[in-house]
Amino acid sequence: MSAYNFAYLDEQTKRMIRRAILKGLAVPGYQVPFASREMPMPYGWGTGGVQVSAATLTPDDTFKVIDQGADDTTNAVSIRKFFEKTAGVATTEETEMATVIQTRHRIPEAKLREDQILVYQVPIPEPLRFLEPRETETRKMHSLEEYGLMHVKLYEDISQHGAISTAYAYPVKVSGRYVMDPSPIPKFDNPKLEMEAIQLFGAGREQRIYAVPPHTRVVSLDFEDYPFEATKANHPCDLCGAEDSYLDEVIMDDAGNRMFVCSDTDYCRSRRKAGHQGRMATEGAA
């Protein structure tokens, strides 16, 4: 593809994004404004993640894209093809083999390594947005470290429902300073936010980039008497038998029978390859 620059974006745009990434790493959890470009895919479909990946990839990288944990969901396929075409990078479905992983809504089950980078697609980067719709106000609240409103909201949940009713995009405090939206990952994934890999977050439509360096303290907001709980469906995976992975619920038939399978397709595949079997695994599986 000679009509476009390496990794699609022009160099000046990449420099602008790269500067934002560096500032984001220097102030973990703070949302750095950046002049997001119109990409050839719609806003809300991963343009932030795509721009961050484009500014991060080198031709030596092996790139993996997941959506809902899966490599073969249509939008993941579409983004992977985009970078195969514009950056000529190798791609993989194996978490182990990837150097850069772009994700929507999940953190892979396998522990990520020091030499890997996880790029999140973020729809609404502002954790306070649904409490206060105004950017001018939320920016002030971050600057004053005024997060009382968030605690009040969580506490209202408890008094009303007996539990915090946020199941995904569960807010975290990063390095003891900024409250951050971890993107709409299930709260099951929150404890994994403290990891070896560099985590970069891109919100294209909202024009924000933020980052969590490796080994950074990331605490899910909670209360002493209502501690944070990373929950998942109380089942093992019906295909690979994993007890520790986040599960998708699949409706099997008209009678509404269900099965539960790993949302991380690569994790499930590699476990089955290693001989693990779930309740519904048969000889024809995998």
């Binding site: 119109e38 719609p42 806003y43 809300g44 479909w45 343009t47 959506d67 809902q68 944990g69 969901t73 939008n75 929507r104 809504h105 999940r106 729809p123 429902h161 007996g162 539990a163 009713s165 199941a167 995904y168 995009a169 709409p184 990952i185 299930p186 709260k187 099951f188 439509r205 929950t231 998942k232 469906a233 986040y246 599960l247 998708d248 619920e249 949302s263």
Partner: peptide
């Protein structure tokens, strides 16, 4: 372009988020 992208993105799979909501509502 911003509006239509974000509006239409709710067509994309959200079953991970939905699953976590589903479990929460069941629990509550």
């Amino acid at each position: 372009i911003q509006a239509t992208g974000f509006l239409e993105h709710i067509k994309l799979p959200h079953y991970v988020d939905f699953q976590s909501e589903l479990e929460l509502v069941r629990k509550l």
